[in-house]
Every structure is written in structure tokens, then in C-alpha cells.
């Protein structure tokens, strides 16, 4: 089962992203807890990871760094979604290895376009 993993602690944003992606035919699994991300990935590798930065447990930046660091070329695309939108924040995300950085508030349609572009439809 190829799925997209979402780590987002705000339940409404989580629901919003889930509904938008599911509406386009993707399978989504979500967690509000940063510490759950790696175990979930170990259980089954997702085709993409969406990470909020400010998560309980490990932060999105730390997670992104680990995912890209351990898995290298075989790591799934990672999109960081954050309310922190300064240039330095975006740069930090890019340094952590994120493929994209989306600033809140973001448009669900824009997110879907990004996911589809990364996964080739």
C-alpha cells in the first residue's frame, strides 16, 4: 500500500490535508506526534512525507534531516509545512534536506499540485 505520511499536530489542518489528498486518490496516514514518524516509516515506507516543523516530540527539521541522512537517494520526497516563514526558516528547511517548504497559511490546492508534481501525478 503506497501511502503519504503526514505529521501535523493541529487536528483541523491534518483533516484538511487528508481530505484534499484523499479526494485526489492518495492514501494518507497521519500522526500528531513527531516521535511516531520514524517507527511508522520503519513499519512501511511511505511514498512521501509531509512534516510540520513545530511538533510534539521530534521537530520536523530533525526528522527531515534524519530521513534524508539515513536513506539518502532512496528517501521519499519530504515537504515541510510551517508557520515560520522567514527566509532563514526556509533556508533551515532546505538545509535539512526538504524537497519543498510550504508556509502556512497555504492553499490545499497548491499543496495537492506540489504532491502531484513530486509523485508524477
Amino acid at each position: 500500500m503506497s501511502y503519504i505520511l503526514i505529521a501535523e499536530d493541529d487536528p483541523y489542518i491534518q483533516l484538511m490535508v487528508k481530505r484534499k489528498l484523499e479526494g485526489a486518490g492518495f492514501i494518507v496516514r497521519a500522526t500528531p506526534d513527531g516521535d511516531q514518524v520514524i517507527p511508522m516509516m520503519q513499519e512501511e515506507m511511505p511514498i512521501m512525507v509531509l512534516l510540520d516543523v513545530m511538533l510534539p516530540g521530534r521537530t520536523g527539521l530533525e526528522l527531515c534531516q534524519d530521513i534524508k541522512g539515513y536513506l539518502g537517494e532512496s528517501a521519499p520526497p519530504v515537504i515541510i509545512v510551517s508557520a515560520r516563514g522567514r527566509e532563514t526558516d526556509v533556508e533551515a528547511g532546505m538545509r535539512a534536506g526538504a524537497d519543498d517548504y510550504l508556509i502556512k497559511p497555504f492553499s490545499p490546492k497548491q499543496l495537492l499540485d506540489l504532491v502531484q508534481a513530486r509523485l508524477g501525478g
Binding site: 489542518i13 484534499k20 508557520a83 492553499s107 490545499p108
Partner: peptide, 23 residues
Amino acid sequence: ISHELRTPLTSIMGFNEMLMDGD
């Protein structure tokens, strides 16, 4: 404050857009 304001705004704007898009 800005972070705390942006989070609810994300849901408001996002769900609004989805409603308008006919989702």
C-alpha cells in the same frame, strides 16, 4: 502570536477554498 494566528488561519482559508472548489 504570529504562529498561533497562522495555524487557525490555515484551516479557515484551506477549508474555505475546498468548499469553493466543490470538494
